[in-house]
Nucleic acid binder design. Structure first.
Lengths: 215, 215
DNA sequence: GTCTATACTTGGATAGAC
DNA sequence: GTCTATCCAAGTATAGAC
C-alpha cells in the first residue's frame, strides 16, 4: 500500500499517529539544543516543546544526560562519515578544502553544528557529562589527524609539528569560533575564514606537491 | 607603627581582623572559579569557601553575575597590559613570541586562564552574562588585531586576510584548546603548540623582514 | 507506555533583626 | 555591615494509577 493511501486511511479512522515516541523526544531535544541552547534544555522545556510528558524522558532515556548524549550522537552520526569520505579521496588538497567548506557551511546552516557546540560547551559545566562528550570528540580529532599529517609531511615539517597537536589546534579553533559566535560575535567570521583557506589552498598546493599533483 | 606591632596589638585586644569583606568575597569567587569551575560557583559554595555569609554577596555585588564579572575583571586587569607591553615593543617577532609564551605559561600555571575560560564558557550557558562577557573579550581581540596585522602585511597577505578575522581565529583557538583541556584532554598540548610557534618564529622572521630586521 | 502527582534538591535573592 | 530565616522558582527524578 502506498504511503498516501496509508495516511488517508489513518485520517478516516482517526488512528493516532504511530510516531515513535522515543524518536519524538529525541527530535525535541535536538530542536531545543539547536534553537535555545544547552542552558535551556531542561527536561521540562524539551517536553513542552515536543508536547509530551516530561516523565517520558526518563522512561526512554534514563537520565537527561542520556538524552543529550543521544541527541549529540544522532546529529553526529552521519557527519563524520561524510567528512572522512571527502578527506580520504585522492583529490587535490584545494579540492578537498572546497568540499569541506561546503560540508561546514551546511552543518552551520542546518544548525547541526550548533547542537554539537552547545553540548561540548555544556559538558564543561556538567562534570558528569565531560568524559562522555570527550569520548565522542575523539573521532573528529582522529579524522583531522590524518589530513593534517599529510599536509605537514609535504610542507616539510614532519618531526617538528605533531599531527595530533595540529589536529587539536584546528578543532579547538572551530569550537572556539562557534562559542564566541554564540556569545554574540559576528556569526559570519568562520565562513569568511573558510573562504580564505579555500583561496589560499592552491598556493599551498603549488608549494607542496607541485602544480597538478593529486595529494 | 610596624605591621607586626599592629598585629600584636590587635591580638591582645581581640580586635576583629579588619579585612575588607568585599575583597574576601572576590577572592573566594576567584578561587572557586579556578579550582572548581563555573558550574560549582554558586553563591552558596563561594560563601562556604570564603567562610562568610551568603547574603553578603548580594549586599556587596548586587547579583551573583555581578560577582562573577568582578572576578573576571580582577583576574584580567593587569594581564592585557602586560601582553600589550610585549607586543608593542620594537623587538623581533621571534622575541615577542618567546615573551608571549612565558606570559601564557604563567597565566596557565597560576590558574588565571582557567578563571577566564570558565567564565567565557559559562556565559554560553547564561544568556544574561553573554553580552557582558563579550564586551570584556573585545580588548583581547583588539590587541591580537594589531600584532597579526603587522605579520599579515609582511607576509604579503594584506587584503587577503583581514587582521580581525585572524585575531578572531587565534583567540578562538586558545579558548577552544582550554575548553577541550577542561574536558579532560591532554592539558599540555597548548604549551607544546606555543613551543612549536616559538621554534618556527625565526623562519617567519627570515621570510618577512629579512634576518635581523626588527619587526 | 503514558499519565498525574509529588518528593527532594539546589539555587538566587530578599526581609528584617541586630 | 552582617546575620538568620525564609521565599520562591526551577530542576531531576520517581511512585503509582491507568
Amino acid at each position: 500500500m502506498s504511503n498516501v493511501a496509508h495516511d488517508v486511511e489513518r485520517m478516516l479512522n482517526d488512528v493516532p499517529e504511530p510516531v515513535d515516541t522515543k524518536r519524538r523526544i529525541l527530535d525535541a531535544a535536538i530542536d531545543t539544543l539547536r534553537e535555545d541552547g544547552f542552558a535551556v534544555a531542561s527536561a521540562r522545556t524539551i517536553a513542552r516543546r515536543g508536547d509530551f510528558n516530561q516523565a517520558l524522558i526518563f522512561y526512554h532515556y534514563g537520565t537527561l544526560n542520556g538524552l543529550v548524549l543521544a541527541a549529540f550522537d544522532e546529529v553526529t552520526r552521519a557527519r563524520i562519515e561524510r567528512y572522512v569520505e571527502v578527506f580520504e579521496g585522492p583529490e587535490y588538497l584545494a579540492t578537498k578544502l572546497l568540499a569541506m567548506r561546503e560540508l561546514y557551511r551546511d552543518d552551520r546552516e542546518s544548525g547541526r553544528l550548533r547542537v554539537i557546540t552547545e553540548v561540548i560547551g555544556g559538558a564543561n559545566l556538567r562534570p558528569d557529562l565531560a568524559p562522555e562528550v570527550a569520548a565522542r570528540i575523539d573521532p573528529w580529532l582522529d579524522m583531522t589527524d590524518g589530513v593534517v599529517g599529510d599536509i605537514i609531511a609535504k610542507v616539510g615539517l614532519a618531526g617538528v609539528v605533531e599531527p595530533r597537536d595540529a589536529a587539536f589546534a584546528i578543532s579547538a579553533c572551530f569550537l572556539g569560533m562557534d562559542l564566541l559566535g554564540n556569545l554574540g560575535y559576528d556569526e559570519a567570521r568562520p565562513e569568511r575564514l573558510m573562504e580564505i583557506a579555500a583561496t589560499l589552498a592552491p598556493m599551498l598546493e603549488l608549494l607542496t606537491g607541485g602544480f597538478g599533483a593529486p595529494s
